[in-house]
Amino acid sequence: MARFAMVIDTALCVGCSDCVVACKTENDVPEGFCRDWIEEEVRGTFPTVQLTIHSSRCNHCSSPPCVSCCPTGASHVHEGGVVLVDHGKCIGCKACIEACPYDARFSHPDGYADKCTFCIHRVEKGLLPACVAVCPTHCMHFGDLDDPESEVTQLVRSRPYHVLTPEAGTQPNVFYLTRGR
């Protein structure tokens, strides 16, 4: 069983939002909405400051609360562990939006719940997700964590990493690398 994952090297990310823009065009995300975004965290006091930048999106959790709460089965786990929404089945009850600790979902103007798909339409053609393919800093990686040879597996094996809000217990599949240490 494949387990698709994204590995993002925060040490390289400059927060340029190219991933956000590429997603908007690739997926025709309507104006005023986004499926991925940039978060910045500032710690410390000037000039001893730490800035951490995250490109964030649906974490395609292995234990996805958005799927278990869906009353119609519209939210489902696709092959490779990708969490998707079947637009036709979705009634727009927004329970999944409430269920996501990352606030990664939103109501599409057409009424259904929408979010990142890991660009499954590209991945199934052998392409990288649009955000990964466009990143000018090459800080984003995508692949199969169940393949021991894959780049993402190698990265999470060899580098320290964290996931977002692990305490929510959702087992996210977007991993953030931190440098050295």
Partner: peptide, 12 residues
């Protein structure tokens, strides 16, 4: 100290 995001989804 500072947390910023450029996400801007209505309702979210």
């Amino acid at each position: 100290l500072e947390l910023t995001s450029n996400r801007h989804n209505p309702g979210i």
